Amino acid sequence: MDARFLGIAELAEVPSVAVVVDVMRAYTVAAWAFAQGAEKIVLAESLGDALALKTRHPEWVALKDGPAAPGFDAVNSPGLLRSIDLGGRTVVQKTTAGTVGALAVKDAPLVLCAGFVVAEATARLLRTRKSDSVTFVVTGENGQADEDLACAQYIARRVTEAGVDAAEFLRRAAESRAAAELTEGVRQGAHPDDVALCLELDRFPFAMVATLEDSLMVLRPCAVPSLSGEASV
């Protein structure tokens, strides 16, 4: 598999397969939202768009980066979201980098959104699709976020290699700037457990697939059954 690792600004063409990585915290939060029962997540282009969607659909749950704000129901924190019952609900998510990355590749035939919590399921889906070329979109810090790059590199290795040790990749993420800022309280709208939750490898058994539905970029969980004979992969 030919894997490319690009920042959002480096996306010069529409990839055939894109894996958008935001470990801290957009796609860890998205995975938790599905685990808490959410049916789908609408990835909003702006805070204004998120609020407009919330106005049209008052029953939807809107969340954003940073501190709580009028019109939003939650913040982009897995530690805070894990206590919210989202059974059957639609979530509207707007974040600084993760949602931006997914919208940047919205025309790609296959768009996956990922973090460490869904790494194996994401790799397995790429294996089932037999993807020859995959573009990993490293969303944080203009493509330089080491937690996102480490996760992307781990997933890429996991697609083709058996027994990949995740320890070094997780160490890089734990020592990243994002982890330090969350731990030190630089980033608002956080919970003390956020970093640890973002580093839980394969916490959830599903991948997350984003597709255009009526002009909206919609993220949904995707069950990925094990392939016959792949137990050792």
Rank of each mutant, 00 (worst) to 15 (best):
Leu216Gln: 00
Leu199Trp: 05
Gly229Pro: 11
Val23Leu: 08
Arg203Met: 10
Ala74Gly: 08
Ala18Arg: 01
Cys222Trp: 05
Ala44His: 00
Pro221Tyr: 06
Met217Ser: 00
Tyr27Ala: 03
Glu39Met: 09
Ala166Ile: 06
Pro225Met: 06
Gly87Glu: 15
Thr28Arg: 06
Arg89Val: 03
Arg172Ile: 11
Val233Phe: 14
Thr96Lys: 13
Val19Gly: 02
Val137Gln: 05
Cys222Tyr: 09
Glu120Ile: 04
Ser228Lys: 14
Thr135Val: 15
Pro58Ala: 12
Leu182Met: 13
Arg172Phe: 03
Ala179Ile: 08
Ser215Cys: 00
Leu170His: 01
Leu197Asn: 02
Val117Thr: 15
Asn142Leu: 14
Lys64Asn: 07
Ala69Arg: 14
Asn142His: 15
Asp193Tyr: 04
Ala145Cys: 15
Ala68Val: 13
His191Trp: 12
Asp107Ile: 00
Thr183Gly: 11
Ala97Trp: 01
Phe136Ile: 05
Ala33Pro: 01
Met208Cys: 06
Gly48Pro: 08
Thr95Trp: 02
Val21Gly: 06
Leu219Asp: 01
Thr211Gln: 13
Asp202Cys: 11
Gly7His: 05
Thr122Gly: 09
Gly98Arg: 02
Asp202Val: 09
Glu175Tyr: 06
Ala121Met: 10
Ser226Gly: 13
Ala121His: 04
Leu216Gly: 00
Val14Trp: 00
Glu184Val: 05
Glu13Thr: 13
Gln188Met: 13
Ala119Pro: 01
Tyr154Thr: 11
Leu43Trp: 03
Val118Pro: 00
Glu10Phe: 10
Ala207Asp: 07
Ser226Glu: 15
Ala62Arg: 06
Gln36Val: 10
Ala173His: 02
Val224Arg: 01
Ala104Asn: 07
Val137Thr: 08
Ser215Phe: 00
Val20Met: 01
Cys151Tyr: 07
Leu6His: 08
Asn76Ile: 11
Phe116Arg: 02
Lys130Ala: 15
Val137Gly: 03
Asp165Lys: 14
Ala231Cys: 13
Glu120Phe: 07
Ala18His: 03
Trp32Ile: 03
Ile84Pro: 00
Arg172Pro: 00
Ala26Gln: 01
Arg172Thr: 10
Thr96Met: 10
Ser131His: 03
Leu51Glu: 11
Phe72Met: 03
Ala35Arg: 08
Val111Lys: 01
Ala152Glu: 02
Pro109Gln: 13
Glu184Tyr: 05
Gln153Phe: 01
Leu125Arg: 07
Pro67Met: 09
Pro15Tyr: 05
Ala223Lys: 10
Phe34Ser: 03
Arg124Lys: 14
Leu227Glu: 15
Leu47Met: 12
Asn76Val: 13
Ser83Ala: 15
Asp22Met: 11
Ala167Asn: 12
Val14Ala: 04
Pro192Cys: 10
Thr99Ser: 05
Gly115Ile: 02
His191Val: 11
Pro205Cys: 10
Arg187Thr: 12
Lys106Arg: 15
Tyr27His: 14
Gly140Glu: 10
Leu80Gly: 08
Ala162Glu: 10
Leu110Ala: 07
Asp132Arg: 14
Ala210Leu: 09
Ser232Asp: 15
Ala3Asn: 14
Ser133Gly: 09
Thr122Ser: 13
Ala210Trp: 00
Leu103Asp: 04
Tyr154Pro: 03
Thr96Tyr: 07
Lys64Ile: 07
Ile41Phe: 01
Ala173Asn: 04
Ser226Pro: 05
Asp165Leu: 14
Pro221Asn: 10
Pro225Gln: 08
Gly7Ala: 08
Ala97Cys: 10
